[in-house]
Design a protein around this nucleic acid. Structure first.
Length: 269
DNA sequence: CAATCAACCTGGGTGC
DNA sequence: TGCACCCAGGTTGATT
């Protein structure tokens, strides 16, 4: 669920509402997250900034510490006032000033939250691929990273050390826009195809962001509201339905272990 | 280094 | 309604 647009939505709202506030206490309800009750304690740490890296959310704290979170498929990061009714599947709550709380809810418990230092933060960022809205996201740079890769282009797009933030939904939509077959080997794309794909990735992510994200099942923004981008999708989870461009039935098949949808007629290569 | 695959978990949907 | 079974938007670490 949460891919770049969804995490960006949450990050913006958190930045707007929590920068400058101090964490007063931490309630851990899931023992998998007991490590958040560490020493030195998070209590007393002030939030300096909230940023997104790929699909990760980073709360930069004073003392050069960073709280790095990932929602995986089922997580929500909610901004709540202290008197807001309980949220289902709460795993940890960060109690801030002004009766504000950041609640991390996640039924599947795949999501992560950990506190790291400056060294680990730098390493983490250097391992992550190119951000689609950065100036480094160019045809030349992406073509270089695809070079000599034998995996399907769909699989390469999902590789977070190549491009950061693209997940299953936006990968299928970008490939459809660029008219590239998801099974085509990444290293064999012509430069012009890479150029189309670079444009398409930016386009589908920007559209997703504008519609408040894609909500298929659980995604909600920091205020608990779903997005509407699922209404704009052209191929994802539409097997058998007509391709909006040519009318041929959309095909669904597993690629690299991920469900994938594409038009077999206008995405021939 | 690159590719593949299992593991991490639970809820929701489907079919009997 | 109950239950077994299958599927899920992601990442990591072990293995080939």
């Amino acid at each position: 669920m949460p891919e770049l647009p969804e995490v960006e939505n949450v990050a913006r709202r958190l930045r707007e509402m929590t920068v400058g506030l101090t964490i007063r206490s931490v309630d851990v309800l899931d023992s998998k997250l007991d490590h958040l009750l560490c020493e030195p304690s998070l209590s007393g740490a002030t939030i300096q900034d909230v940023v997104r890296h790929g699909k990760f959310l980073a709360l930069r704290l004073d003392g050069a510490r960073v709280l790095l979170m990932h929602m995986m498929m089922s997580g929500r990061i909610l901004l709540r006032s202290a008197d807001h009714p309980p949220d289902d599947y709460l795993r940890v709550a960060f109690i801030l000033d002004r009766q504000i709380q950041i609640r991390f809810c996640d039924p599947r418990r795949f999501g992560t939250a950990k506190l790291i230092g400056p060294g680990e933060y730098t390493d983490f960022q250097s391992r992550l691929g190119i951000e689609p809205f950065s100036t480094r996201f160019t045809t030349t740079n992406i073509a270089r990273r695809f070079e000599s890769r034998t995996v399907a282009i769909k699989t390469a797009l999902l590789n977070q050390s190549i491009v950061a933030g693209v997940g299953n939904i936006y990968a299928d939509e970008a490939l459809w826009r660029a008219r590239v077959n998801p099974l085509f080997p990444a290293g064999e794309l012509k430069r012009e195809q890479v150029a189309s794909l670079v444009r398409a990735v930016r386009r589908v992510l920007r559209d997703g962001l504008k519609s408040g994200g894609t909500t298929f099942s659980r995604y909600a923004d920091a205020d608990g509201r779903p997005g509407t981008n699922q209404l704009n999708l052209n191929v994802f989870r539409r097997p058998g339905q007509p391709c909006p461009r040519c009318g041929a039935p959309v095909e669904g098949k597993s690629i690299g272990g991920r469900t994938s949808h594409f038009c077999p007629y206008c995405q021939q290569r």
